Computed example of a mutant assay.
Amino acid sequence: MVVCLGNHCRSPLAAAILATRGGDAVVVRSAALHAGRLVDQPAHPLMIEAATALGYDLTDHRGVQLTAAMLHWADTILAMDQSILTRLREQAHPDDQLKLRLYLPDADVPDPWEKTAADFTACAQLIDQGADQHLA
């Protein structure tokens, strides 16, 4: 499970990359802490473009709100930044705490929301570079 704030930029791409690279060996989902108006909405157009440039297709993505059942379902829960990880630790059941970690081990994946196309591209590249550490 990959979690970001709105399930509109970072987590959809991370899920697509992990699912593609992991193949049939993994099932990856993404969700938002606070999807709000982004539930059932497509990924951000600039993230769709950045993903396409890297060879990933986000056109079928629709935003999803995180639930306790999703946290329990997941073997691993990857937060895109420290603030999300902190909020997940507050929300997660004690049995799910050990599953929580950052997507990048020592850094946040910066949120490109309301930034430039170059920021989306840089974010996408960072997500792409960090993916292999999560796959056996």
Rank of each mutant, 00 (worst) to 15 (best):
A107S: 11
G130R: 00
G63Y: 08
A122R: 14
R10W: 12
C123K: 12
A92G: 08
I17A: 03
A74K: 08
G130F: 01
L85F: 09
A124C: 12
I77Q: 01
Q91L: 09
Y56D: 03
A15T: 08
L135T: 15
T116F: 06
G6R: 15
D57C: 08
R62F: 06
N7I: 09
L18N: 05
M1W: 12
T76G: 00
R21F: 02
P112H: 14
T76Q: 13
A74H: 08
G6P: 13
C9I: 13
T67D: 11
A117F: 04
A131M: 01
A69T: 10
Q65A: 11
D40R: 13
G130T: 01
P94L: 01
P45Y: 10
V109Q: 05
C4D: 15
D95W: 03
M70H: 12
L71M: 14
T67F: 10
R21D: 03
D108F: 04
D108L: 03
D128P: 00
P110A: 11
H8T: 14
Q82K: 11
A16R: 13
T52K: 12
D24P: 01
G6Q: 15
M80R: 09
C123R: 12
N7L: 12
A53Y: 00
A16P: 02
Q41E: 11
A16L: 04
G22D: 12
R89A: 12
G130S: 01
P112F: 10
P12T: 12
D75F: 06
Y103I: 00
L58D: 07
G55L: 00
G22K: 12
M47T: 08
Q97I: 03
D108K: 08
V64D: 05
C123E: 06
G55A: 02
D111K: 04
Q133H: 05
